[in-house]
Design a protein around this nucleic acid. Sequence first.
DNA 1: TAAGGTTACGGCGATCGTAACGATC
DNA 2: GATCGTTACGATCGCCGTAACCTTA
Lengths: 299, 299
Amino acid sequence: MNLSQIELLRVLQETNLNLSKAAEKMHIVQSAVSRQLQLFEAELGSPLFERQGKKLIGLTTLGMRIMEEVATINRAKTNIQNIAADYLDSNQGILHIATTHTQAKYFLPAPIQRFREKYPGVSIYMVQASPEQLIDQLHTGRADIAICTEKVDQVADLVIANCYEWHHALVVPQHHPLSTGEISLERLAGFPILTYSFGYTGRSNIESAFKNTGLELDIILAAADTDVIKTYVRLGMGVGLIAGMAYDALTDQDLVARDLSHLIPSSRTKIAYLKHNYLPLYSQHFIDELLLAAKEIQC
Amino acid sequence: MNLSQIELLRVLQETNLNLSKAAEKMHIVQSAVSRQLQLFEAELGSPLFERQGKKLIGLTTLGMRIMEEVATINRAKTNIQNIAADYLDSNQGILHIATTHTQAKYFLPAPIQRFREKYPGVSIYMVQASPEQLIDQLHTGRADIAICTEKVDQVADLVIANCYEWHHALVVPQHHPLSTGEISLERLAGFPILTYSFGYTGRSNIESAFKNTGLELDIILAAADTDVIKTYVRLGMGVGLIAGMAYDALTDQDLVARDLSHLIPSSRTKIAYLKHNYLPLYSQHFIDELLLAAKEIQC
DNA sequence: TAAGGTTACGGCGATCGTAACGATC
DNA sequence: GATCGTTACGATCGCCGTAACCTTA
């Protein structure tokens, strides 16, 4: 057994068990990969993969169990490399952030800018995705830190830090009936609604607010990002339910925002990262920066 | 980085950072070990060991952090081997049991015999040690399963299964004053006591029983095993406080045993093993056997 | 001077690359 | 016939062993 065999098993999973593609990823020829896999299976005494002819089509029971350990080894191995690199120079490196549109646009700009000033040597990569995808990004090592509101607190191997709490707001064009007067769930439900897609940015709290009222929401547009929602609100398609901080007093002067904190439960945006992953110092400082920015928002 | 370098780091810790001894353990010459360590440190970019001249005298900060990951990798590696071996033949292997004298003599014989009949292909090694040492045996991989009453439930990375509950008993020679009449803590404290060493077999519960009474115990002999205690009780040196199941109605006819469950809190014997270690099927069955034997005792 | 560690160098074996072949869609 | 995997064989590079050397108790 050696580390490149372990690495191979990981790469094989990332390539749908395709030996040729795995070879390419590992910068060696395909025959070498083929042999290494054979040697490893021979050493263990049983096949790790189900085969159809020569093709690998899945993991055996043994293979699945072994893969857990393989993942552990690979994690620990990259941890070693990261720890050492961090020890050499904790001001340099790469930070992969995965987040949703709302956070990327309305929350992250300030803390990221401050972070960049302190750590000019750290390259920041930002990926936008759905909460589900974010979690996957963490697990596959394509992201170091995820920032979002939904789902992450239901995953066991993540460390979660509460970031900030926010409320939904209603946005309507000026002179819209809902721009004045008391707002209730009943009144809201009388209009076509534009809000976030299922599984995004506090959507679950909108659901739960209406759950036991017997009212049916007429959601005519579900988008992953606030800007799309605003766009169609401006077109008069309906009323928008968006995250409070996504209303920009300056650029959204043509819209009226109204707080819904008394109607819809508050949402909590979290910071998440893998429990078994080593976070470089600068990543930890990035999180500090986020928490600082969060505090400022809350006041 | 490769697995033998990782292995080397482990072996170095086991040999007090002695390169020569590590080389011997790994069945290679010392110069090879020296070079591999240099290569690894060079790859990481910083030394892992503090040096005095050429001698290794300790771990650096980096080294200590890296060692945690090294341990993880080594665990996962042996897990892979064990899982595969178990998959090939789950009736063969080695079972390292670490336990205290009392368990070894009065509880384990029955379940071990039954286990041996079912798994003749499994070699059983039993180590006797103090509870503290047992935990160390688990951590260093010299034991797979530990069975004892004290301490194990205070260690984070152990899985604990409750085995059985038992009470202390008093043993005295026949015609001893304590062989008749009501027994109280006060009366007990009037005699010289012989019992288990500190940290052994429910000793902590004896302590806690007397803690708030203001009574001072006159422990004139503390032994790790019951037989020593009985021996000196027979010599008339004092009264013995032993585990109830350690009184053998047959061979201890010359002694009188009296239940102390109303005076001393009950003790609980546990089964412990490392959280991140793979236990072969037969080990799991051995635990089942223990739990079965425990149930029989309780009735 | 014995014990522990490093450096230099030659030899061997593990693993890679090339290439030809086999199977499956 | 294109894609994917295996087998055979020669070449290479990594790692070990020998041996001489350095350092400190």
